[in-house]
Design a protein around this nucleic acid. Structure first.
Lengths: 230, 230
DNA sequence: AGATCAATCAAGTGATTGATTGAATCATAT
DNA sequence: ATATGATTCAATCAATCACTTGATTGATCT
């Protein structure tokens, strides 16, 4: 041990930052924020090859951001704790505040229109309680099944168009997706507004909703969400 | 623009993480958290060559973590905002919680003894007001001069030994340094406790104290800190 | 025990990064 | 204008990284 403790500490901190420095790994973390998963599932969701995905996961594990457990033949990975989410969220905040490129991309998602202010999770919870809102979960069906806001309807961007007619034209819609990294809700809101709907985005996504300690419904056989209910 | 907006966003977020992924850059950020500085000053403080330091600074600027302004011939860099400090702090939290290596290093700083709980900044402020505490600033003199907790005495690890006799043996000492990344205060507390003093560490460092909105004294000619006062 | 499936390991390749050196800017002072 | 001082740019090299391919391990099921 010839190097100073200070240098050794900085090296460790840098290791964590390095783990977050590849888009592929951020993508994996976003997935793991939805629900724990095996390597193959993650590879499929993120579009990485299996071996590549496994290697990225080991980067993340060395950095202490994820942990794994064996379940039969499968190895299930999950986020170590909510601090990881906090890190990703700060990353995003710095990016939105200080990088012009990010602002440009986000504007592009809304066709140049100024998107309405997002709805806070607390406000959405309140409006859900009084039934004055239609909540839209804009994620793949399997992630919806793994957990969603009670009462939320599920659709994807691809099927949004067929879904529209089932909505009342004066419904007040709030959409959410995987979280602040995800652009599905942005795009869904833009599409809905083009059609004249009153649509806004929820701040954050399901992981943040869950981190707030709010109720999450698991499964698909919930009355309100069975099929394209109105 | 052939790549998806989502991939583009992840790329930008990764850029920020990459900026934090080199120990040299973390070191620079820690310095900038003390006070804005020119390239040459930073190079000297961090032990980097000038050109190398300049390149690291440009990495950080591209990531939006620091900004620069010209002052005559010099270019002064400073942190863009306090969010950057938050990022570094989360990095440290994840490291301390999840990396065994970090826990090992931190234990080593205290000679294996269990260090006492750090004093919160609020508690220190209260005890300062009632005068029941001796505050020690364990940073180089120039950083002390650029801003310190009012009433704090300044010494470094190297000169600590000569400083000891000027302290009352039953003084209750609280030490601080650059911040959570810095090990000076850890080491000073360990040294003081070896000598039988009642010494503890303040939580965080001067940047965190300042971020709390607490008073900061600039200069060296403050009555309490002129010379090795008692 | 052998077959099967999920995941990891190992080796190789092209691209990127960090550090070094020396030359080129840019703003000020002479 | 020219010179000076502070910083940045450009070119280079070794080290590291991301990704691919193919072999290997570990746990289950016949």
């Amino acid at each position: 041990m010839s190097i100073s403790p200070k240098a050794a500490l900085l090296e460790e901190y840098a290791l964590i930052a390095r783990a977050l420095s590849a888009p592929a790994r951020l993508s994996i973390l976003e997935q793991l924020a939805q629900a724990p998963r095996g390597v193959e599932g993650l590879a499929e969701k993120t579009g990485l090859t299996l071996a590549n995905c496994s290697q990225h996961l080991q980067h993340l594990r060395r950095a202490g951001l994820v942990t794994s457990r064996r379940d039969g033949k499968a190895v299930i990975y999950r986020l170590t704790d909510a601090t990881t989410l906090g890190l990703m969220d700060l990353l995003r905040m710095v990016a939105e505040r200080n990088l012009a490129e990010v602002a440009r991309i986000l504007r592009g998602l809304s066709d140049g229109e100024d998107p309405p202010e997002p709805v806070s999770r607390a406000e959405l919870a309140a409006r859900l309680a009084e039934g004055s809102v239609t909540v839209l979960d804009v994620r793949p069906a399997d992630e919806y099944a793994a957990g969603h806001i009670p009462g939320a309807l599920n659709t994807t961007l691809a099927t949004l168009e067929q879904f529209l007619p089932t909505l009342s034209p004066d419904a007040r819609i709030v959409a959410y997706c995987r979280g602040p990294y995800c652009v599905y809700a942005h795009q869904a809101v833009a599409a809905l507004r083009r059609q004249g709907f009153d649509a806004r985005r929820m701040e954050g996504g399901l992981p943040e909703w869950r981190a707030d300690g709010r109720p999450v419904f698991q499964g698909t056989d919930e009355p309100l969400s069975a099929g394209p209910a109105r």
